[in-house]
């Protein structure tokens, strides 16, 4: 049981020393781990803080590649560095390339641009005439779920408490207590700094005095 799982059990009132429902083994902790993994994935998505560097060996006269990382889920490419030529590649898109150079898929030459299609396909312009070009790609990734207690948690410490709250929210939702589930979920959004994702937030109307309800009342009285 890692520290996050211990914290979750403490908040839901489980006995930490000898838990009886969520026992300290892979089967017993599976629901808690699933909830924590959901939170870790979501926090990595919205913050984009988990990054990995991959090397991609380009193939001869091949511009488009489908990427399949083994250890993480593919996200977005942030930087591409041409190691042999000591220069960064610039990001572009299909529409721009098609307008600037209609032969962008078939011309060989130095690789100067990259474009991403969806999250798992990437193209390079121009395509290399021969093998041998190795590109360094900095990618924004989502870590695969951790499955055992000693596995590293790929989340910064200051967001880990937020992940705990989201797992506690899941626990209350499973128990059918929507009020407490929503309370902890909002607490998770606040701790992780994600309140801007709350779609109801922008609907708040901030002002010093009066308000829409007063206006509404005046109109009703006038009618």
């Amino acid at each position: 049981m890692n520290s996050l799982e211990t914290h979750v059990l403490r908040l839901i009132g489980e006995n930490i020393a000898s838990p009886d429902v969520y026992t300290d083994d892979d089967t017993g902790l599976a629901p808690i781990r699933a909830s924590l993994n959901d939170a870790i994935e979501e926090l990595c998505m919205v913050t984009g803080h988990y990054r990995r560097r991959y090397f991609l060996a380009l193939q001869e006269e091949r511009p488009v590649y489908r990427l399949a990382p083994e250890n993480d889920y593919m996200g977005w490419i942030l930087n591409v560095w041409d190691r042999s030529n000591h220069r960064p590649l610039e990001m572009t898109d299909l529409t721009t390339l098609a307008a600037v150079d209609p032969w962008f898929l078939k011309l060989n030459g130095p690789v100067t641009h990259w474009y991403q299609m969806g999250w798992e396909h990437v193209g390079f312009y121009r395509r290399p005439a021969s093998k041998g070009t190795v590109l360094e790609m900095d990618c924004m990734m989502v870590p695969r779920p951790y499955t055992y207690s000693t596995e590293p948690i790929k989340l910064r410490d200051n967001w880990q408490r937020g992940a705990v709250y989201r797992a506690v929210s899941d626990y209350h939702a499973i128990r059918g207590d929507a009020a407490r589930a929503t309370e902890y979920y909002q607490r998770y959004l606040e701790i992780a700094g994600l309140m801007s994702l709350n779609p109801l937030g922008p609907e708040r109307f901030w002002q010093f005095r009066g308000g829409p309800n007063n206006d509404l009342g005046r109109h009703i009285n006038q009618d």
Partner: peptide
């Protein structure tokens, strides 16, 4: 409650997509 989570999730996905244009 689950509608609230779904709505937050859709906003999270939109933010995730915007991060794809960081570079």
């Amino acid at each position: 409650h689950w509608k609230f989570r779904k709505d937050v999730g859709i906003e999270a996905i939109k933010k995730w997509r915007r991060l794809g244009l960081t570079a």
